[in-house]
């Protein structure tokens, strides 16, 4: 299935939802509610409450992320906000300010 591509010249302000992967090089504001993956590339900015199966960050995210499967922060990726996911990977060179919750049963 062809994925959704938010190019560097595109700005979405509102709610993005549905099936299929989304690759972001532009700007997405508001809310993202996805059954698949959200890929924030270098230069991409997401200022939103994110719910997705998988999130990969090479760009910039401000907001909360709630992933069903995993969140991966790649080198150069920046995040301000909380992450909640069963699997979280933060690579060397990625920066984050916020809480991390892997839902560890205490």
């Amino acid at each position: 299935m062809e994925h959704t591509y938010v190019g560097p010249g595109l700005m979405i302000d509102g709610e993005v939802s549905g099936r299929g992967d989304i690759q972001v090089l532009g700007l997405v504001k508001g809310a993202v509610n996805l059954q698949n993956g959200l890929f924030i590339e270098l230069g991409g900015v997401v200022e939103a409450e994110v719910a997705a199966n998988e999130v990969e960050i090479k760009g910039y995210v401000k907001g909360q992320i709630n992933a069903h499967d995993r969140v991966e922060m790649k080198p150069g990726g920046k995040m301000i906000g909380d992450i909640r996911a069963p699997r979280i990977i933060i690579a060397d060179g990625a920066t984050i300010k916020g809480k991390i919750d892997m839902d560890v049963g205490a």
Binding site: M1, T4, Y5, G7, I12, D13
Partner: peptide, 26 residues
């Protein structure tokens, strides 16, 4: 060649501003 795509299965509720071509399948 360089254009944004909103694919089938995706729904956007809100405003979109584009400085590049946009293909809407959703």
């Amino acid at each position: 060649d360089q254009h944004s795509v909103i694919s089938d299965g995706i729904r956007v509720s809100g405003t979109i501003e584009a400085a590049e071509d946009l293909l809407i399948r959703g």
